[in-house]
């Protein structure tokens, strides 16, 4: 049997070290990219002495001189997709922690009530999807729709 005090301490550290693992892997991933890009810089610029010229660093537009910047207006359909995504993502965020509790709810004898609650919530949001689809927001070329 382990000493309860040590066990409590180690459980506390384990919870802390979970996020430590994430921090370590994140730092290593970032460090890896930084290291590789530094190696490229060292090999090409310091050892290889490659220099850049204005024509090399010009924006690629099929070999022509670029016509204006690319930061222009873009199609509104992306905005609609983002809105629908946002609605469903919020739904997911709310449903994800609820669903694992479904089995215990059944065991406690109110499975049907919980099922109906989740179903009503999702069905309400589904109406939004049906509306968007009926409006033709998922047809890429809206002008051809209806």
């Amino acid at each position: 049997m382990a000493d309860p005090a040590i066990l409590a301490a180690s459980t506390a550290t384990a919870g802390y070290s979970d996020y430590l693992a994430i921090a370590v892997v994140g730092a290593l991933a970032i460090g890896m990219v930084a290291g590789i890009l530094w190696a490229v810089w060292f090999v090409t610029r310091v050892v290889g002495r490659i220099t850049t010229t204005p024509s090399k660093t010009s924006t690629y537009e099929c070999g022509e001189t670029p016509v204006g910047p690319a930061w222009q207006r873009f199609n509104l359909r992306f905005y609609l997709v983002a809105i629908v995504f946002l609605i469903f993502d919020v739904e997911l965020v709310l449903v994800l922690p609820t669903l694992p509790l479904f089995a215990p709810a059944i065991a406690a004898g109110h499975g049907v009530a919980v099922f109906l609650k989740i179903f009503l919530f999702v069905a309400t949001l589904l109406l939004g999807l049906v509306y968007a689809a009926a409006k033709g927001d998922f047809a890429w070329d809206k002008s051809k729709h209806g």
Binding site: L37, V40, W41, T44, I50, T52, P54, K56, T57, S58, T59, Y60, P66, P69
Partner: peptide, 8 residues
């Protein structure tokens, strides 16, 4: 390979 950062 050269790591190019375009000017724009």
């Amino acid at each position: 390979k050269e790591d190019l950062v375009p000017s724009g």
